[in-house]
Design a protein around this nucleic acid. Structure first.
Lengths: 207, 207
DNA sequence: AGCCGTTGTTGAACAGGCGTCAATAGCGTT
DNA sequence: AACGCTATTGACGCCTGTTCAACAACGGCT
C-alpha cells in the first residue's frame, strides 16, 4: 500500500508496464472518462494527464486518437451488453417487461455514462455508429431469444425484414423514452413505463 | 452577366457586401455544405474557400465556428419545419398518416441533408441538441393541432406529461425507422410503413 | 469631382491539439 | 554486471481555430 502507483500522477519517473496491462489501463480509463465527458473532450492531453503517461505513448497502442475513441466505445458497449443480463420466465409480454426493467435500471444507475455513450454513438464517426447499431441489434436479439420465437408468434410477432426494421425503431424509441424518463418521470411509474414500452413492440410490429 | 460575382472564387479582389447579405450568404452556404458533409467537416478553411472570403471574416458575423454551426443547424431546422407543411382533413389516424407521408417524402428527397442534420443534432453540442428537440416537439405539436384534440381523444390520446414523454419517443422511432426505410424498405410499402407508424402512436400513448 | 470617415475585409501572427521520431531507460536474460 | 529488447519520453512539425492591426470599398459631404 505504500508503493501505490496511484500516487504518481505528478511524479515523472517512468513506469514500464506490459503492453496488455497498459492497453487495459487506457481502455478502462477511457470508459471511466467517458462517463463524465463527451468523446471529443477526451483529448490526448487529458488522457496522458490522467493515465500518468506522456502524450506520445498512446500511439504505441492505438494508431490514432480516433481509433482509441472507437476502442473505448466498443468497450463501453460490451460492458452495457454484459451488465444488462437476461432474466427468466413468464409470458412473452411480461418477459419483455422484465428485460426492459433491467435495461431501465441500468440506465438509471449509469445515467451520465449511458448518455455519453449514446451521444458518442450518434456522432459523426461511421465505425462507432456501426458498433452501436450492432449492439442495439444484439440487445433486441437477446430479448427475442429469451422470449422464444413460438411465444412471440402468439402475440403476432414473427421474424421478417420488416420486423427487423420496426424493431430497431422500437429500440430507438425505448432509448429515447428511458433517458427522458430517468431525468423526469412525467408522472409515470416504472411499471407503467415498462408496460407501455412492452405493449408498443407488438403494436408496431404486427401487420 | 460579365461581372458575375460567382467568377471570383480564385481572384483575390475584395468584395464588400452588406452585413445582412454576407451573413445570409454564409448561412445559405453552410446549410448547402451540410447536405454533403458532417458538421465538424465544415471547417473555416472550407468555408472561406467556398464563400471566397478570408478565414478571419467569419468572426465579424459569428463569435466562433461553433456559433456558426449552431446558426446553420437552426436554419436547417427552420427549413425542415417550413417545407414539411401541414395537410388537410380525414379521420385522425388517416390525418396522421398523411402528415407522416409528407415527412417521409421530405426525407426521401433530401436524404443526405436530413441525415446530416440528425447526426449534427445528436452530437455533443448542448445548444444544437436543444434546437433540434424543440423542432421535433414543434413538428408533433403541429400534427396534434391539425388532428384536433377532440378527434384524438376518440382514439384515446389525451394531452398529459406522460403523453408528451411518449410522443417524443414515438417521434424518435419515426425518425429512426424512416431513415432506415429510405435506404432499404425491407419489403415494406410506403402505405404499410405509414399505417404502422401511425397506429404505433396511440399504441404507445394510450393508458 | 474629390476628400473623408465608416466599416467590411484581409492576412499575418498566435494558440492549442494531433501525430512523428530519435533518444532514453526499465526489466528480463545471460 | 553487462546486454538487448522495447516501453516510454519529449521535442518537433503540421494543421485548424482565433485575434488583431492594417487596408480598402463605398456613401456622404463639401
Amino acid at each position: 500500500m505504500f508503493s501505490n502507483l496511484a500516487h504518481m500522477t505528478t511524479s515523472s519517473s517512468r513506469v514500464r508496464m506490459s503492453p496488455e496491462s497498459r492497453r487495459e489501463q487506457l481502455l478502462e480509463l477511457g470508459t471511466r472518462l467517458l462517463a463524465t465527458r463527451t468523446l471529443d473532450e477526451i483529448s490526448i492531453e487529458l488522457l496522458a494527464e490522467e493515465a500518468g503517461i506522456s502524450r506520445g505513448l498512446l500511439y504505441h497502442y492505438f494508431h490514432s486518437l480516433q481509433e482509441f475513441h472507437v476502442a473505448v466505445v466498443r468497450r463501453a458497449v460490451e460492458d452495457l451488453y454484459a451488465i444488462t443480463a437476461p432474466r427468466d420466465v413468464g409470458d412473452p409480454l411480461e418477459q419483455l417487461s422484465v428485460s426492459l426493467g433491467a435495461y431501465v435500471d441500468f440506465v438509471s444507475e449509469n445515467y451520465t455514462g449511458y448518455v455519453s455513450l449514446v451521444r458518442a454513438a450518434s456522432g459523426s464517426n461511421e465505425e462507432i455508429r456501426k458498433i452501436y447499431q450492432d449492439a442495439r441489434r444484439a440487445l433486441t436479439d437477446r430479448i427475442f431469444d429469451i422470449a422464444g420465437a413460438e411465444e412471440l408468434a402468439t402475440v403476432g410477432v414473427v421474424d421478417s425484414p420488416a420486423t427487423r426494421l420496426l424493431t430497431d425503431g422500437w429500440a430507438a424509441m425505448v432509448e429515447d423514452v428511458v433517458m427522458a424518463w430517468v431525468t423526469d418521470p412525467h408522472g409515470l411509474s416504472r411499471e407503467e413505463l415498462l408496460n407501455r414500452l412492452a405493449r408498443a413492440l407488438p403494436a408496431v410490429v404486427v401487420a
